[in-house]
């Protein structure tokens, strides 16, 4: 009976962990999304100083979140986002269309990662 109780406890622990991990990912995605929006708005308003500060904050935040995410997500997926994030501060100062493309790429990849962790039918299949 000890083994059965341990098995139930482990399964319960895994379910709890999965829920917490998903919540963390969604929360982190929200934080990055906010910064992306801030960069985009500042850039559109021609406030390159604020946009640059937000871009640096994005890079700083991503450096922290990347470590946490690597517990749940393959390095390959995170590397793509890291390279996009690294380009953002440079594109902010130069102010070109590529900034939008990179920001959209970060947003989309993060969305895909978060969606991939949710137990939805298309992920399960």
């Amino acid at each position: 009976m000890k083994r059965v109780k341990a098995a139930f406890a482990l399964i319960g622990g895994i379910i709890l962990y999965s829920v917490i991990a998903s919540l963390f990912l969604v929360n982190w995605q929200g934080e990055i999304d906010l910064l992306i929006d801030e960069i985009r708005v500042c850039n559109e308003n021609g406030d390159s100083g604020k946009a640059s500060a937000a871009a640096n904050e994005l890079a700083h935040k991503w450096a922290k979140l990347e470590k946490g995410m690597s517990i749940f997500v393959c390095d390959e997926k995170l590397n793509n986002i890291s390279s996009s994030v690294a380009k953002v501060p440079q594109f902010v100062t130069e102010a070109n269309d590529e900034l939008d493309a990179e920001l959209e790429s970060i947003r989309r990849q993060l969305k895909l990662i978060c969606r991939g962790e949710l137990p939805l039918w298309y992920n399960l299949l």
């Binding site: 083994r3 341990a6 399964i11």
Partner: peptide, 15 residues
């Protein structure tokens, strides 16, 4: 996670 899940399910199914 899959290792623990499979081992636990094996125990639960045996029970």
């Amino acid at each position: 996670i899959p290792i623990i899940t499979l081992a636990s399910l094996d125990v639960i199914m045996s029970w």
